[in-house]
Amino acid sequence: MQIPTEKRKMARKASVFVVDDSLVYRNLLRNAFAQDDEIEFLGTAIDGKFALPKIAQLRPDFVILDVEMPQMDGIQTLEEIKGKFPDTQVIMLSSLTQEGAKVTLKALDKGAIDFVSKPDGKLDGAISDTLESLVSKIKALHSQKSYHETKFESRLPVELPILHKHGKTYNICAIGISTGGPIALRELFKKIPADIDGTIVIAQHMPPLFTNYLAESLSQAANIRIKETEDGEILQKGMAYIAPGGKQLEIVNSANGPAARVFNGPEEELCKPAVNILFKSLAENFPKETVAVIMTGMGEDGYLGMKELKKNGSYLIAQNKESCTVFGMPSRPVQDGLIDEILNVERIAEKIVYLLQKVL
């Protein structure tokens, strides 16, 4: 059921509080939020020690939290926030360093809903991209939260009839995912057995360095091995591969079976890795062997790739709105009727196992 237009217009602004020891970033964020009609800026603090009393008083929808701060760092502050104010959503501000990537992935494990990266070096055009990304995330996350609070039920089918398999068909499962991905992937891989008879390949929107630590983090809770993909690597059954941040990934034919091609570009794709690039390569090279899953995330990356997969005979699954952090990427494939099944994360894992299993 759709929320009436007049009710959408009356939706409450997203209230935001910033915790960062950098005066420059506090002012940049203050200005960005103050200029947006959909965001209510509540204030700032220099670290967790000063932030917690204000958060208790103001009860913001979102806390923008720096990873590295004196006295009380981002992880300590995050644990306090999620322990005392579980409904407050936390977005981390992370540096593009190995240590920053490690700590940020730890923060996502501890309840942060997402992160944005602070640009290295001078505050040039990259800071505008960071601020724009952060504002967009807040709006998308707030919209999804408002959807849950309305308690309207979706009219989309939860599940279509079970596919009846007459032989082994699918060997590759490709997953496209973004905002909320680490949390959803952790839940999904807990349900994937070690003896799965196929390969899982993932395009998760993340910067360089982060995807390697994501693979390591997911492996700790998974039954199968998960690693960052290397160029030329032959895909093995019973493994999951994550596309490297800052690169594109295609799956191509080789003399020894499906292989990874990792490369730069193309520039017309906004994301590196792009789900469209991964999906289109599978539509060209392994369409009838592919199960493609589009999961939580902002924007429409993956839609064009799913159109190609659909034309060429792949099996398509979307995460349902109710279980998404942001129902952006699955939205258009669902609306356009490309999807064979719409499932929550647990059921997606079950269906991947079913579709990739041997049939005797």
Rank of each mutant, 00 (worst) to 15 (best):
I342L: 04
L42N: 01
D73R: 07
N171H: 14
F33R: 00
V135T: 03
P266L: 12
P333K: 05
R261Q: 15
I3H: 03
P161N: 06
I75M: 07
S217F: 07
L356A: 06
H142N: 09
G176Q: 07
G181N: 09
S178L: 07
P157F: 04
M92L: 00
E79M: 12
K168D: 14
G125S: 10
P119A: 09
G74Q: 08
H142P: 01
G167Q: 14
R225C: 13
H166M: 11
L338K: 03
R332M: 12
I81T: 02
F327M: 05
D37L: 00
V359N: 14
A292H: 01
A14S: 14
M298W: 01
K272V: 10
D197S: 15
Y170L: 04
H164Y: 09
D114W: 09
M92I: 04
I202N: 07
G245V: 05
S254G: 10
L249E: 07
K139S: 02
N212D: 15
F62K: 03
F17T: 10
Y213D: 12
Q220K: 15
K165V: 07
S254V: 10
N276R: 06
N171F: 09
A240E: 05
A11I: 13
D336P: 05
A221P: 03
V158L: 15
G245K: 07
Q357C: 11
P258W: 09
R155I: 14
V116T: 13
V334A: 12
L304G: 08
E99M: 09
A14C: 09
S117E: 12
A32S: 00
E38C: 00
E68N: 15
K191V: 13
M298K: 02
I183D: 14
L131G: 01
P86Y: 00
R332E: 13
G328H: 04
K311R: 13
E132F: 05
N344T: 04
G100V: 03
Q98E: 14
R261M: 13
I39N: 00
S323N: 13
E322W: 05
D129Y: 08
H205T: 11
H166Q: 13
E132A: 11
I294M: 00
I226Q: 09
M298H: 02
P208I: 09
G245C: 10
M295N: 01
N253A: 11
K151W: 02
R30S: 02
D109K: 14
G313A: 06
F327S: 05
E346P: 02
A140R: 01
E149Y: 02
D21R: 08
F85A: 01
I39K: 00
D109F: 04
S314R: 05
K165M: 15
L360M: 11
G299R: 01
A243K: 06
V201W: 06
E132R: 11
G111N: 10
R332Q: 14
N312P: 03
A292L: 03
G111S: 10
D36Q: 02
A51W: 01
